[in-house]
Amino acid sequence: MPATTSLQSLHVMVWTALMASLIAVGSFLSIPLGPVPFSMQPLFVMLAGFLLGWPHGMIAALLFVAAGSIGLPVFAGGKSGLAVLFGPTGGYLIGFVLAAGAIGLLTQARKTTRTPGWLLGLLAGLIGLALLYACGVLNLIRVLDIGWHKALTIGFLPFILQDLVKLVMAVATWRIMHGRGLLPR
């Protein structure tokens, strides 16, 4: 294996671990609000997808979920364990993995020297958020035994506007890093 390929692999692994760590940091930047807290995790989940692409963005989110599942206090509010994964917010955790993967897959092909477009980023991010919210709301319905209306009221409506702002921040960061040649791919 050439040294360049080995160094590139190491570079991507370090970035993957960094993004998993940033998702964990995002969980500590949270405000408890009923069964689903406000947090900065979606920003870092989207960034993982944008910056790392497929499959490493998804792997970063999966590393975060695995770390919390085995007992590291990385979930919102310093929680951890399988009880969180199978509890009311577990669907959002699974949604993080799917969102980062989808965003990475949709933006992966954009490796040209041109700066990626806002439209591509916003579209990929909206699809990622749709997956995240679908998993989260469906899990709220299952775990809390509530209807669609109640699940959307507690698990979607209070969060969507702030997550759209986070999407714009993630796309802007992606575009800046791409334009400066700082992407880890």
Rank of each mutant, 00 (worst) to 15 (best):
P116H: 12
V36E: 00
I160F: 00
G87M: 08
L122D: 01
P35C: 05
G34E: 02
G34C: 05
G78L: 01
G71W: 14
K79L: 06
T112D: 15
Y133C: 09
S6G: 11
T89V: 13
L122R: 01
D163V: 00
L85D: 04
P158T: 01
L123F: 15
I141M: 08
F44N: 03
V45L: 13
A48L: 07
L51A: 14
S21F: 15
G90C: 08
L29G: 08
A124P: 04
L119A: 14
V25K: 01
S21M: 10
L10Y: 10
G53A: 03
G26F: 01
L152R: 09
V45T: 15
F28M: 12
R180Y: 12
G81C: 00
A20G: 10
W118K: 05
P184G: 07
V65G: 02
I127T: 15
A130E: 00
L123V: 15
G87Y: 09
L72M: 13
L120E: 06
V12A: 04
L72K: 05
A172P: 06
P37M: 10
I70P: 10
A172V: 12
G125C: 08
I23A: 10
P2I: 07
Y92F: 14
A99G: 06
T89W: 07
I154H: 02
G71M: 12
H11E: 03
P32A: 07
N139S: 04
H149D: 14
L29V: 15
L98Q: 09
I176R: 04
I176Y: 10
L129G: 00
F75Q: 01
L18R: 09
I103P: 06
V137A: 09
M13K: 12
I94V: 15
F159W: 02
G179R: 06
A24T: 07
V14G: 11
G147L: 00
M177R: 01
R110K: 13
F28D: 09
K111R: 14
I59C: 09
G136C: 02
I94F: 15
W15S: 12
A48P: 10
M46T: 08
I103E: 02
A60K: 03
W15Q: 09
T153G: 01
G128R: 03
A76I: 00
S9I: 09
R180N: 13
L119D: 10
K166W: 02
G81F: 00
F50A: 04
C135F: 15
M40E: 02
S39Y: 07
H149L: 13
S80K: 06
D163N: 11
W118E: 05
M46G: 01
F44R: 04
K166D: 01
L182Q: 04
G53S: 03
M169P: 02
F96R: 00
V65Q: 08
L52M: 11
L22M: 14
L182F: 06
L22F: 12
I127N: 08
Q41R: 06
M177E: 01
A67C: 12
